[in-house]
Design a binder for these strands. Structure first.
Lengths: 183, 183
DNA sequence: TCAGGGTTTGACCGATCGGACAGTTTTCCG
DNA sequence: CGGAAAACTGTCCGATCGGTCAAACCCTGA
């Protein structure tokens, strides 16, 4: 029961919260749940963070930042090189921030309507446009949307699926979205 | 304000609830939200249904039934015909019960852990096995999982994506999962 | 040793959740 | 018409939500 005061509690909270948010959703996870997973009291969470939303924001910050970096890199590329870069950049992003992306897209569209994440929505649209070669064809957009939708289940460790298999599946999935045949 | 007693209120409730559950999740939708969308009081919902869970159960019943039918049909097929039938059956199921499937897979894994839907979890596993040709290869399972994960976003009307585009995207997505190249 | 600040806790708050219940309105039918 | 059944509402309940606060804890440095 007793927890030694002073330690890396902040990191423990963020780690536990990321797992719980990814598994049961943001709204489906209570502060008590997080506190129980960490092994501290609910009040301790609110000492380290300004609230539940602040935990979420700090949790997603690195992923959002990586999203912005990718978005800026794509904007600096010529149209012909964009799609290839979009695929590998997107796959990299998903692999690195698996849990975060699961939380972000898993609670769509509720989460993206928050002012703090409104930019992610726009960046997702731009990524979608890049994946589909900026064509507004509904068929291509549908395919790309399906790819993005599959990402929230990217936490596949419990299913016995390793990093290599997940990465190759993501690459194939994303590559299919920009396959000109069948558009 | 006043609602005329006697009417198809049950259907109105189920329709409104399916939209709200798909959009904001089961846990993210309150009885007040549903009542507000229907235009009746919260107590009226509990007059027609035994509770929030009962609304969900009745909402998902047709989709679960269709799932069971597909599962039985696949079990009666020889292994060589299973995969082709699995793809078209799965796509048909998603197209017919778009909102229901979105609710069901969108609240994964919370929802599937309920005793009432435990069978769906097993059937999903069997469908996964059918899509991947019963091979336990992690790579193939990862690809199939991504396909299933993309389904919750299948409510694409707001994105201007019609039925034909969605269907073809689903077929291509599912077909990729059983593509022997790259397994 | 002891003061002081960072850390943690239990108790508590208002709001909202799903749900229960009695009473009122509306529809149906003899 | 009039009364029974169906449909619906307002109100209340206990539990839980996110969040606050004062008191207690523990580690550190003078």
């Amino acid at each position: 029961m007793s927890r030694s005061a002073r330690s890396g509690t902040r990191e423990e909270i963020l780690d536990a919260a990321s797992w719980l948010f990814a598994a049961t959703g943001f709204k489906g996870t209570s502060l008590q749940d997080i506190a129980g997973a960490v092994g501290c009291s609910k009040a301790a969470l609110l000492y380290h963070f300004d609230g539940k939303d602040a935990i979420l924001a700090e949790l997603l910050a690195p992923a959002v930042e990586a999203f912005e970096t990718l978005d800026a890199r794509l904007a600096a590329l010529g149209d012909e090189a964009v799609r290839r870069a979009a695929v590998e950049g997107f796959v990299d992003l998903v692999m690195r921030f698996r849990r975060e992306v699961t939380v972000l897209y898993g609670d769509l569209p509720d989460l993206l309507q928050r002012p703090a994440f409104a930019g992610v929505q726009e960046m997702t649209d731009r990524l979608l446009a890049a994946l589909t070669g900026r064509s507004a064809e509904p068929a291509a957009r549908a395919a790309a949307l399906l790819v993005l939708g599959g990402v929230p289940v990217a936490c596949m460790e419990p299913c016995g699926i390793g990093d290599d298999e997940l990465r190759s599946a993501l690459v194939r999935s994303a590559a299919r979205a920009l396959d000109p045949t069948g558009a």
